[in-house]
Design a protein around this nucleic acid. Structure first.
Lengths: 224, 224
DNA sequence: GCTTCCTTTTGACTTAGGTCAATGTTTTTT
DNA sequence: AAAAAACATTGACCTAAGTCAAAAGGAAGC
């Protein structure tokens, strides 16, 4: 319990016996906001679960420009892909807030896996899910325009909070990067959605005014 | 041996014992060119391995327009993601050529998995690989322009054939979709690369003339 | 409170790449 | 071999979204 391993969605359905074993091989680590967790090309000698905080996964180009691949929050596990593939980390990870993580060392985890088939099964479905997420991201990037992507993102946030009024979980520059665009474009798109009375915003607070309008937008390229 | 299960890269490193079991639960199926294998939203009750032929995985929008997510060839396995996640197929699959596939029914495969941990391990690394491929596709689509994407694709083909002269494995319309663009744009980009003496083409035959130039192009956005 | 820094917004401009439509060019069918 | 269908190329045009530059807000430090 002290390490909250059972809070990670991939492990939550495991028998207590395995949870205990997982706690046995893991270690708790704290990172202040702004600190790097690993960098691109570091050896993937273990993966992480988030107890609290927010972690940004991103790639960056030689000068400046970065593209955010994902932002993870409490209960989520990240970097397990590189660990299974036995390769170096393909991207950077950085704590956006003061964060508490659980580290699972590669070798010890691997032994555990060999002994416990249920664990493998759980991981297989996690990976399937991840893969599906990426497939829809590819679709999104290749089929839809920025307004559609933003609309889809807002609808997702709405689903998670279950309210028509919620806060963006990252600042607007980061949101832009996450949507595969730049702050200027995002700003203009938000402005347009406000003018058309689809949403209202105030700082990082968003209120959905016209749900139907937002859903229509999210359909994007598929609209007739 | 009759079913060629050991030719699938994910299974190739398995002990003969498991190969035999896999052959036991699988069935061979033939599809003529142009035939659908499954459609979006069909229940994912099994996955496929390709003995021979070529399979296109794609999404399509209400009118016309389709986006190719992947094209698989002999030795590759597809649709296992949906099967593990226990969901319906998220895309369509169609035989581009006369193809021979091996079908692995979901339930029987699952039981096998529960009994054989090594199999799980192998699958985990397959999934990791797939995931990594998708991550780089996202990068590609969001960071690079069409000429860079084409250059990267040609370099990949070169790597596979190990020759500076090779054939495109799909027609140009399909290649366009695979690269996230349209035939017109692809045609113009190829034309430009020919004018700049980077490649030569004749029908579906491509010759790389200026390797360095191609590599520079593939760097795309990262270029200084 | 003022200054410095960072984020967001706005404007003017450019450009990659998409749409539509016409014309060649292969491939397939009869 | 002729006709039809499918695929590929080209041209003219348009638009979404990126670049660059500047201004306006907010938050943080002195």
């Amino acid at each position: 319990m002290s390490k909250h391993v059972n809070n990670f969605s991939i492990f939550s359905s495991l028998p207590q016996e395995y949870i205990d074993k997982l706690e046995g091989i893991s270690q708790s680590r704290k990172y202040p906001a702004g600190q790097a967790i690993f960098m691109e090309n570091d050896p993937g000698n273990g993966f992480y679960g988030i107890v609290e905080g927010k972690i940004k996964i991103y790639k960056s180009s030689p000068f400046g420009k970065e593209h955010i691949l994902h932002i993870f929050g409490p209960g989520e596990v990240f970097a397990e892909v590189a660990v299974f593939a036995g390769i170096n980390f393909p991207a950077n990870a950085l704590a956006l807030e003061d964060s508490t993580l659980i580290f699972f060392p590669r070798n010890r985890f691997r032994s555990l896996l060999a002994e416990n088939p249920d664990l493998s099964m759980n991981l297989l479905s996690l990976m399937s899910m991840r893969l599906r997420q990426m497939v829809s991201k590819v679709e999104e990037l290749s089929l839809k325009e920025v307004p559609a992507r933003l609309a889809a993102h807002l609808l997702l946030l709405r689903q998670n909070t279950d309210k028509d009024k919620f806060n963006l979980d990252v600042n607007k520059s980061q949101l832009a990067s996450l949507l595969g665009t730049i702050p200027e474009t995002l700003s203009r798109v938000i402005r347009k959605m406000k003018d058309e009375n689809i949403i209202q915003t105030n700082g990082s607070e968003v209120v959905i005014v016209d749900m139907q309008g937002l859903e229509d937008l999210a359909e994007g390229a598929y609209r007739l």
